[in-house]
Computed example of a mutant assay.
Amino acid sequence: MDDTIRIIGASSHPELTAKICDYVGVEPTRTEVVRFSNENLLVKIEENVRETDAFVIQTSNSPVSEGIIELLITIDALKHASAKRITAVIPYFPYARSDKKDQPRISITARLMADLLETAGADRILSMDFHSPQVQGFFRIPADQLKAAPLLCDYLMQNRDLSNHVLVAGDVGEAKEIGGYANRLGLPIAIVDKRREGNDDKARAVAIIGDVAGKHALIVDDEVASGGTLMEAAEFVMRQGALSVEAVAVHGVLSGQSVERISTSALKSLVITDTIPLPKEKRIDKIEVCSVARLFADAIKSIHIGSSVSSLFL
């Protein structure tokens, strides 16, 4: 790549930044982040970025709020250092689940995140698999949403014998997204029917639409957080006669006791991407990681030279 491109890796995921830079063929731009005793942050760009095409990589992981502030400060620093264009590369978008007003007197926080990024000085956004389609519409600046399905399908075809598998949506809401996997893999679909009973507002699996008996079930989801919903779906399909159950998800949030739940569950394996770093203490044999670094690198190169990003979805 030419010398007008700069890739700045914020603190959240240095491993992914390094991989992306290797694929793009550039060195990460040097920065300094200082955390003062009063918990304020200072971000200094240590190289000349005047009139350059700058890409800031920062995903959403713990500590989430500090990561957001660091990203906004970095964008603002680049803006005042006269970067020609600033793209916020956010593999896992913060507050993506807060995409609607489903309770009174709450914030649609995903929209707030979009506004904050634009106000800080971002000229465009590059992310992967928003929780829902409307999040992309919250931006008044260009926002490219990469899809992990092609990568994950290729990974599954290379590492699994899928001849007797069925794809399972954990609830009706996931049924539309699972269609992309079904088309690529040529597999049938089943949907777990969840209902709310009583006053505890907890959805429970009561039936399954489709057939999993005598087949290997593969549950597809956009993210795994606490793992409770995934574990319930896995146990339910096994009770419906599935031979085994595995899962694939784009974002491995894996909060709380999720890893412990996975390790002791009926789940044979969980395939996730590296949009969020997986610390050593969470790397168990059941969890497999498929990297998205090359896809993000290709998208960054396409944005830089002005070619189509949508062609990467094919």
Rank of each mutant, 00 (worst) to 15 (best):
Q103A: 13
D123H: 14
D102T: 12
A96V: 02
K100V: 04
D129Q: 08
R105T: 06
A114G: 04
L116R: 06
A120K: 12
L126F: 03
I108N: 06
L117T: 07
T109Q: 03
E118Y: 02
I106S: 12
P104C: 05
K101A: 14
I125H: 07
A110T: 02
A110F: 01
S127P: 01
L116D: 08
D123Q: 08
D99R: 12
E118H: 07
I108K: 11
E118Q: 14
T109E: 01
L112W: 10
D102Q: 11
E118M: 04
D102F: 03
A96M: 02
E118R: 11
L116I: 10
A96I: 00
R105V: 05
I106A: 08
A110N: 06
R111H: 12
R124M: 08
I125W: 07
S127E: 09
T119H: 07
T119Q: 14
R97H: 11
D129E: 15
D99P: 00
A110P: 01
L117G: 05
D102V: 03
S107W: 00
Q103I: 00
D102S: 11
E118F: 00
A110Q: 07
M113F: 01
L112R: 09
A122C: 05
K101T: 10
T109A: 15
T109N: 06
L112S: 13
D102M: 08
K100L: 07
A120Q: 13
A110E: 03
Q103M: 14
S127F: 05
A110W: 03
T109W: 00
D123A: 01
L116G: 01
R97S: 09
A114Y: 05
S98V: 00
M128T: 04
L112F: 12
K100H: 13
D102C: 03
R105D: 13
I108Y: 08
D102Y: 04
R124C: 08
S127C: 12
P104V: 10
T109I: 00
A96C: 09
E118G: 01
R111I: 00
D129C: 03
I125E: 11
L126Y: 09
A114V: 08
K100F: 05
A110D: 04
L116K: 10
L116E: 10
K101M: 14
T109H: 01
S98E: 15
R97Y: 04
R111L: 07
S127V: 09
I108S: 04
L117S: 09
A110K: 02
A114S: 15
